[in-house]
Design a protein around this nucleic acid. Sequence first.
DNA 1: CTTGACCTTCCTATCATGGGAAGCCCCATA
DNA 2: TATGGGGCTTCCCATGATAGGAAGGTCAAG
Lengths: 138, 138
Amino acid sequence: MMTIGEAARTSGVSAKMIRYYEETGLIPSAGRTGSGYRTYGPKDVQILRFVRRARDLGFPMEKVADLLALWRDRDRASADVKRLAQDQINALDQRIREMEAMKASLTHLVHCCAGDERPDCPILEDLGGPAPAPSQAQ
Amino acid sequence: MMTIGEAARTSGVSAKMIRYYEETGLIPSAGRTGSGYRTYGPKDVQILRFVRRARDLGFPMEKVADLLALWRDRDRASADVKRLAQDQINALDQRIREMEAMKASLTHLVHCCAGDERPDCPILEDLGGPAPAPSQAQ
DNA sequence: CTTGACCTTCCTATCATGGGAAGCCCCATA
DNA sequence: TATGGGGCTTCCCATGATAGGAAGGTCAAG
C-alpha cells in the first residue's frame, strides 16, 4: 500500500489528477488510512497507468471510461475495443486534416511574403481583405 | 452603423465573442447608441473579420493581438509578420506530429486486434500492461 | 518536541466558446 | 396607442483537463 504521492510517481499520473479522476468517478474511490490519507495498491496503480496511456493516445476521458469498462469486463468482445480505437484514429485524422489545412494556407502566405524591413505584407493583406463574395450559393 | 447582431453576421464572429474580444481588449470598445446598444461600422467589421481569419488559421488569441498590432502599424517590417506566421506553422507541425504518433500507435494496435466476439484484445493488454523497465537510464 | 515533507479539502485559473436568465429597447402591426 | 416579438444589455455558469495555491492536519526522522 502506498500514498497518493508514490502512486503518482509510479503511475505517471499527478496526485492532482488522481484525486480528480476519483471525484469524477473515472476510477474507484481509494481506500483511506485512519487519518484520512488515500491508499493505493498495485492494482490501483495499474488502473492509473491504464488511464495515463489511454490519455497519451489522445482518448478523451469519456472514452477512457468506456475503455476501462471493457477492460474490467471479462466477457467483452474485442470488436468493441477495436471500434473505440478506430473511432479515435478517425478523430485524430480529422484534427490532423484541419491542422494540415491551416498549415497549407499559412505556408502559401509565408511564401508570398518578402519578410524584409518593408511594411508590405500579403499575409496581413489576406487577413484584412474583403469578405469573399457569397457567389449566390443557395 | 450596425448593431452587434449584424456585425456578427457580416464578420462571422458571434455576438458573444465580439463582446468577449472587447472585454479582453483584443479589439477597441465599440461605440454606443443613446440606449446603450453597441454600434459597428465597416472598419470594425473588417477588424472582426481579421480576427476570425487569424483564429481560423489556428493562431491563439495572444498572437492574434500581435498580428492586429502589426496590421495597424504602417511602419511594420513584413519580416515580423512572417516570423509570426512561421512560428504558427511550427506550432501546427508540432501538434500534427504528436497526433500522428498517437495515430501510428493506435493503428498498430488496431491491426493486432481480431475485432471479433472474443474478449482477447491486444489493445487492452497494451494499455493495462506493466510499466516499461526503466532500463537503468541515468 | 521540532522540523520538514507530505497529505487533506477547497478555491482559482487556464483558453475560447456557448448557454441561459432577467430586464430593457425598438419596430411593426393591429 | 398598445402589444408582441425579436434583439440588445449584463451577469453567471459550464465546458475539458490540468495546474497552482492556501489553510490546516499527519507522519517520520532527528
